[in-house]
Design a protein around this nucleic acid. Structure first.
Lengths: 192, 192
DNA sequence: AAAAAGTATTGATTTGGATCAAGGGAACGA
DNA sequence: TCGTTCCCTTGATCCAAATCAATACTTTTT
C-alpha cells in the first residue's frame, strides 16, 4: 500500500525507518472506484492525493459543458487543486478516477506538520513541484507552438503509459483538440 | 540594488541581518541593456535571475522563426530556464531584456550552498515555484478553454502592469495569438 | 536630422480545426 | 445476457483565426 510512495520519496531524499513510520501515520489510504470524485469543483481541496495505483484526472468544465483536462496522474504522481488546498478557497478543478485507484491522502494538517518536523518532506515537495513546473512549461510551449500532429506526438513520446490507459477523447482534451480532430490526426499520422 | 529581492524574500520567510548579508554575498548584480540576452537557446543556463528593475522575457523560436513567449518577468520575479539550470543541459528558451534591467543572479553553486546552509532559502524557493506552478496551471486552462477575447481579458486582469509596459505583439505571442488577431480582438472589445 | 527599425492597424483571402450529425462497435452494469 | 452507456470514426459544412500584404506612426539609432 505504501510502496510507490516511499519509492518515489526515497528517490529524492533519504528517510530512516522511524521517519518512514512517522510519515505513514500521517497518510490516509483511500480507494476510489472508477468515475468517483476525489474533489468536486466548488468544494475546498482538503488533501493532496498520492497515487499508489490507478489513474486520475483533474479537469474543469467550461460554460458549454466541455471538460478540459489539465492533469493526469498515474502511479507515483501527486494530484490536487493546489491553489484551493493552500488557500482553502473553492476549487476550480474537479478530480476523479479514470480507473479504480488507491490513494494516499495528505491532509492540510499533515502537510503542515510534515513541513514543520521533517526537512526531507519540504525537499520532497520542492523537488516534486519543480518537476511539475518544468513539465508544465513544456506543455505550454507545445500547446502554443506546434501543430496538432506535433502536440499529439509530443504527448505520446512523453507519456506512453497514459496514452495506453486513458480514452482518446481525454487525451484530445489534454492537448486542446476536439475528439474528432484527434481521430483525424491519428489517421493522417498512421499513413506515414 | 537589493531592495526588491529582500522585500520579496522576507514576505515569505524571515531573515536576520547576518543572514541577509550572507545571502547578499552570494548574489551577483548584473545590468542588462534592452534586447540584451541573459540566456541564449542552446547555451546552458548557469544562473537564476531575480529582477530588481526592468522587464524580461523567456521565449522559444519555432521553425518558422516565430517567437513564442513563455514567461515575462518584472520587478520581483525570478526568471531562468529551470530545466537547463538544474540539469546543465542546453537551454530550450532564450531570455532577453525588454527594457533595460537590473538583475541579481543566483549561480548554481550559490543556489546549492543556500539550499544547504539556509533553510529559509529552500522555503523561499519552494513557495516561489509553487506560486509559479499555480499561475501556470491557470494559464493552461485559459489557453485551452477560452476564446481569444477571454484570454486577453484574463491577461489584462491578471497582469495589468505587464500589459502597460510590453509591446502588444509580445502579449499576443504569450496568449497564443497572432498580432493581427489581437489587434482585432482589442478593436472588438473596445466597441463594448 | 535623417535613416532605420520596430509597432500597430486594417483589408482581402485562405484554411485548418470546430461543429453538427450519424453509425458501428466495445465495454460496462443491472 | 441484454440494454445502456461510452467511445471512436467518418462525412459535410462552417467559421474564426492565420496568413499575406500594404500603410502609417513611433521610437531608436547614427
Amino acid at each position: 500500500m505504501y510502496e510507490q510512495f516511499f519509492k518515489h520519496f526515497t528517490e529524492k531524499v533519504s528517510l530512516s525507518e522511524q521517519e518512514m513510520e512517522y510519515v505513514k501515520g500521517l497518510l490516509k489510504p483511500k480507494k476510489l472506484r472508477r468515475k468517483q470524485y476525489l474533489l468536486q469543483e466548488g468544494d475546498v481541496c482538503r488533501e493532496i492525493g498520492f497515487v499508489e495505483k490507478g489513474a486520475l484526472r483533474a479537469y474543469s468544465v467550461d460554460e458549454g459543458g466541455t471538460e478540459r483536462i489539465i492533469q493526469f496522474a498515474l502511479e507515483g504522481w501527486l494530484i490536487a487543486d493546489l491553489y484551493s488546498f493552500l488557500t482553502a478557497e473553492a476549487a476550480t478543478y474537479s478530480i476523479d478516477a479514470i480507473e479504480d485507484a488507491e490513494l494516499l491522502l495528505i491532509s492540510r494538517s499533515a502537510h503542515e506538520e510534515l513541513l514543520r518536523n521533517l526537512p526531507q518532506y519540504e525537499t520532497y515537495t520542492r523537488l516534486s513541484i519543480t518537476n511539475a513546473y518544468i513539465a508544465m512549461q513544456r506543455r505550454i510551449t507545445s500547446i502554443i507552438s506546434t501543430t496538432p500532429e506535433d502536440r499529439y506526438a509530443d504527448f505520446i513520446a512523453k507519456y506512453p503509459q497514459i496514452a495506453q490507459r486513458v480514452p482518446q477523447h481525454m487525451i484530445a482534451s489534454y492537448i486542446g483538440l476536439t475528439p474528432e480532430t484527434l481521430s483525424r490526426v491519428r489517421k493522417r499520422m498512421a499513413g506515414k
